[in-house]
């Protein structure tokens, strides 16, 4: 898989402290293991790298090419499925349904719930970008300061 990272996305991921090599790794690993989500031409992949979970969203409309649209990360560990809600617009790489729902997240020994995209068949979960960079990032900050 040829991974292309446009200039504006390079700037964004640099601001978010992510390495381009890690982004390529996330995409290639997901492609190899066929473990990613799809919505139209978009694909969402994730991989734990060190202490953070790195996500990459790509446009797969070009054959054999993944054009990175965004990448983001969070520090929380993803845990068990809490509940499944309605079916989302996403599918697994092999076309199975993906639900909106909640999973347990763990950070600094605290376990709480967070909304996520959940694969009902496997319990695998993905956090969407807005949650990771806003809601969860803010929650991580509060946990680190031990305040609410």
């Amino acid at each position: 898989m040829q991974v292309t990272i446009p200039g504006d996305v390079k700037e964004l991921v640099a601001k978010r402290g992510l390495k381009e090599s890690d982004i390529v790794d996330v995409v290639n690993t997901a492609e190899k293991e066929k473990k990613y989500l799809k919505k139209g031409n978009d694909a969402l992949a994730k991989k734990r790298i060190g202490d953070i979970m790195v996500y990459v969203m790509c446009d797969l409309s070009g054959k054999g090419t993944a054009v990175v649209k965004t990448a983001y990360s969070h520090k929380m560990n993803l845990g068990k499925v809490v509940n499944l809600m309605s079916e989302s617009e996403w599918k697994t790489a092999d076309g199975k349904p993906v639900s909106d729902g909640h999973i347990e997240v763990e950070y600094m020994t605290v376990r709480r719930n967070a909304p996520a995209l959940v694969v009902p068949e496997t319990g695998d979960a993905f956090l969407e970008e807005y949650l990771a960079v806003k809601t969860i990032a803010a929650a991580e900050g509060l946990f680190e300061k031990k305040r609410a």
């Binding site: 809600m85 909640h102 997240v105 719930n113 967070a114 809601t135």
Partner: peptide
């Protein structure tokens, strides 16, 4: 119970 959004601080 099953129909609200639950964040880590709810």
């Amino acid at each position: 119970k099953e129909n609200l959004l639950w964040s880590p601080f709810t």
